[in-house]
Amino acid sequence: MSSVEEIERLLTDALAPTELDVVDVSASCGSAFDVSIVSAKFTGVGRLQRHRMVHEALGDVMSRVHAMKIDAKAP
């Protein structure tokens, strides 16, 4: 299982977001999250690749959780 804090830390370290909102949508079970992230690192990066950057930043978390809804945008 994962936590909001762990996901926030991983994304903050890798992507230096200017806006970040991580919500556990599994009744705090740590198995499903909604992530909304804005980072300058997404500037000029396509939709698919933005999501891949988030997956990469999250590493093993992606295989531990059941669901990860991602909204990744440039400022």
Binding site: R47, L48, H51, K69, I70
Partner: peptide
């Protein structure tokens, strides 16, 4: 070609 997962499909 791979287009995306659920979030990307909904957005698109």
């Amino acid at each position: 070609e791979f287009f995306g997962g659920c979030d990307i499909t909904v957005e698109a």
